[in-house]
Amino acid sequence: MIAPFVSGSPLSGDGPRVLVFSERNVIARKWHALQYEFEDVGTEVGLVDVVAPRVLERSPVNRVFYRISRSGGRDGIREKSIEELTITDDYDLFFAFFAFPSDIAHIQRLKGWRRRCKKAVCFIGEHYTAENDQNRRYFELLRELGFDHVYIFNTAPKEAIASIVGCPVEFMGHGVDGFRFSPYPLVPKRSVDLYQFGRNSDVTHAAALDMAKRDGLFYIYDTIFNVPLEDYLAHRNLVAETMKRSRYFFAYRPGENLGRAQQDDPLSSRYFEAIGGGAILLGSRPGAKEYDECFPWPDATIEIPFEAHDLREIIADLDAQPERIATARMNNIVQTLRTLDWVYRWARILDRAGLPVTEAMRHRMAALERLADMAEERETAALERLG
């Protein structure tokens, strides 16, 4: 848990001031770690102040409040029982990353922010067309609060959302902390043969387990799922350190085994994490056109059947193509550093809001480019040796 208010704004006062509403003190599951990493990068580059209310102690009064809010009271919107905070400073921009539309209700516990912030934007991490009706009230709240721009990860319901919020709605991809996920400059040995976490294929998982048992491959996979995280940063570091040591990672279209996503066929954050660590991503490409916007290079995903009974043969065939694998790995590593770091998402948000990037953001971009150049040079040399 961090303090309710953490400042990262430029001390010189010559850059834009951004207020970020964070839920890191309220809830942290595995899928929240990436959004808190996004916020952290904003703080590291001197861009944002983070306001992170805490959960209220469950006094008798607060327990009643919590039961009322959970039952759909307070204008039909469920809120967590979190502390109320008042914003007293002025900002150029307000930003919030909502994992789900239902989280939008939580900003009602933040007082004075709208008159203190010139513009307001948010990013909604997960929402599907099949959920339009159940989430309508949360989108109406964005309109009532006067949001100026809404970013979404799944664009299938874009028009429906735009008709409710009354402001521009556009796609924004997920990302990674490029320095955390990149195997460079240390380049650890890829000692993990197969890696998988999150939703999976039972058949492919069984095949991977059999390869671990019979062939001695090292296979890492989830054994626990929807549980609270004591430390989101420790989890994010573990994912990154494992990914940069993995040869192959499994990821599938959410529509493969998530019913509410089937109609939309959207992206998944797993693609960004696997590619960011330089693992070879095995699985399926989503139909969303934004996939090509984020990963416009060959073999970003090498497609295999969702039920890969013949996984042993698939891996053997890929291992027999070292130049193809080395090229895919190089592209994943280099392009992540040049396009998928969170700083590029912050730059886009600022640009749309008519605000300049900070000097620290420019320094980070330059450092990412230097690391990308190093990776490209070394990986190209390794490729030439294979030839």
Score class of each variant (00 low, 15 high):
residue 350 L to I: 10
residue 355 L to G: 12
residue 340 L to W: 06
residue 327 T to S: 07
residue 346 W to C: 06
residue 327 T to D: 13
residue 354 G to S: 11
residue 362 R to V: 05
residue 333 I to A: 11
residue 354 G to F: 13
residue 330 M to F: 01
residue 344 Y to C: 05
residue 343 V to R: 04
residue 351 D to N: 12
residue 339 T to H: 14
residue 345 R to F: 01
residue 325 I to H: 05
residue 343 V to W: 05
residue 358 T to L: 02
residue 358 T to H: 13
residue 333 I to M: 04
residue 336 T to M: 04
residue 338 R to D: 06
residue 333 I to K: 09
residue 345 R to Q: 10
residue 350 L to V: 04
residue 346 W to T: 07
residue 346 W to Q: 09
residue 335 Q to E: 15
residue 333 I to D: 04
residue 341 D to M: 00
residue 359 E to A: 15
residue 354 G to H: 01
residue 347 A to K: 04
residue 358 T to K: 12
residue 331 N to C: 05
residue 349 I to E: 04
residue 359 E to K: 15
residue 343 V to M: 02
residue 360 A to S: 13
residue 357 V to F: 13
residue 346 W to S: 09
residue 329 R to G: 00
residue 352 R to D: 06
residue 350 L to G: 01
residue 332 N to R: 01
residue 351 D to P: 12
residue 352 R to A: 13
residue 361 M to V: 00
residue 324 R to A: 00
residue 348 R to E: 14
residue 347 A to S: 14
residue 362 R to E: 15
residue 331 N to R: 05
residue 323 E to Y: 09
residue 360 A to W: 01
residue 340 L to N: 13
residue 352 R to G: 07
residue 321 Q to A: 09
residue 326 A to S: 09
residue 332 N to K: 03
residue 342 W to P: 11
residue 357 V to P: 05
residue 321 Q to F: 07
residue 322 P to R: 11
residue 348 R to S: 05
residue 333 I to V: 14
residue 356 P to W: 08
residue 362 R to Y: 06
residue 354 G to A: 07
residue 360 A to G: 10
residue 355 L to F: 04
residue 335 Q to A: 05
residue 334 V to L: 00
residue 359 E to T: 15
residue 331 N to K: 13
residue 346 W to M: 00
residue 343 V to A: 11
residue 359 E to L: 14
residue 332 N to V: 00
residue 356 P to M: 03
residue 327 T to M: 03
residue 361 M to A: 14
residue 361 M to S: 09
residue 356 P to F: 06
residue 335 Q to I: 12
residue 353 A to C: 14
residue 346 W to V: 11
residue 331 N to H: 14
residue 338 R to C: 06
residue 332 N to I: 11
residue 342 W to M: 05
residue 321 Q to T: 05
residue 321 Q to R: 15
residue 343 V to G: 12
residue 329 R to M: 01
residue 325 I to E: 12
residue 328 A to H: 09
residue 331 N to L: 08
residue 344 Y to E: 08
residue 360 A to V: 08
residue 327 T to R: 08
residue 345 R to T: 13
residue 325 I to Q: 10
residue 338 R to F: 08
residue 349 I to T: 07
residue 349 I to N: 00
residue 335 Q to S: 14
residue 362 R to K: 15
residue 348 R to F: 07
residue 361 M to K: 10
residue 336 T to F: 03
residue 334 V to S: 13
residue 345 R to S: 05
residue 333 I to N: 02
residue 322 P to A: 04
residue 359 E to W: 06
residue 353 A to W: 10
residue 360 A to E: 15
residue 353 A to I: 13
residue 338 R to V: 01
residue 349 I to D: 01
residue 334 V to R: 13
residue 341 D to L: 08
residue 322 P to M: 09
residue 360 A to M: 12
residue 324 R to P: 06
residue 358 T to A: 02
residue 334 V to N: 08
residue 321 Q to G: 04
residue 356 P to Y: 13
residue 332 N to W: 04
residue 359 E to N: 07
residue 346 W to L: 08
